[in-house]
Amino acid sequence: METHESLPRLSRRQVLKWFAAAAAASQASPFMAFSQDSLPAAVGYGSDPKVNDIYKRGDFWPLTLSPEQRKTVTALADVILPADDLGPAASQLRVPDFIDEWVSAPYPKQQRDRETVLAGLTWINEESNRQFKKDFADLTIKQQQSLCDVLSKQDHIDSKIRQAASFFRTFTSLSMGAYYSTPEGWKAIGYTGNVPSATFAGPPQEVLDKLGLEQTVKS
C-alpha cells in the first residue's frame, strides 16, 4: 500500500515502542491525557474526527503556554526562521500557535516534546538573564544569535547545555514543520502542487535535461 509506506526504515524499534505506547494509552477511550506537569486533562480528537474541515490551533484542546513562554517561543522561532527573501518570519505564519498546540496535545509523542520544550524555554531565559540580564525575547538579534550559536554546536560536554542543544533541534524541527505547512512556506521551499489539473505533464523539460533523464511514458 504505497501511501502508507509511512513507517521509515530506521525506526522499527521506535515503531514497536509506539505501538506499545498506543496500546497502553488506548485502554482509556476517548484518549485521556495524564495531567502531570500542569497540562490540563484533555482529550484527543478521537478516532472519527470530521477530517474535511478547516481547523484552527486550539480547536481540539486548549493551548497551554503562558504569555511569557509564548513570548520566548515567538522570539526564538523568528531567529530560527526570520523574514528574508525566501519568505516571512515564523511568527507571521503562526508558528508559535502550532508549537503551542503541539506541546498542549494529549498524545504521548507530543507530551514528551512538551517536557523538552518547556525545559528548554526555561533554560534559554535563565541563560539569557545570566549573560545579559534580560529575557531572551528582549535581547538584540545579535545577542539572540549568540545564544543560538552555542545551542547549534554539536560537541557539548556539559550535560545541561547538551540538553538545551537537544531542545534546540526539537524546536527547530517543530518550527520547520509548522512553517512549511503554509502556502508561504510552500513557496519558500519550492512546493507547487495541491492544485487540480486536467492533465499531468510530468517534470518540465528543463528539469529532465538538467538530470539527464528522458520521459519514458509517451502520450
Binding site: 509511512s6 505506547a21 498506543a22 494509552a25 488506548s26 484518549f31 484527543g44 480528537y45 478521537g46 478516532s47 474526527p49 481547523y55 480547536d59 481540539f60 502550532f98 498546540e101 503541539w102 496535545a105 498524545y107 504521548p108 509523542k109 507530543q110 514543520g177 509548522a178 505547512s181
Partner: peptide, 10 residues
C-alpha cells in the same frame, strides 16, 4: 491539528 501528523487516534 498538529499539521496532520499521525497520532494514536489516527
Amino acid at each position: 491539528p498538529l499539521g496532520g501528523v499521525s497520532t494514536p487516534d489516527k
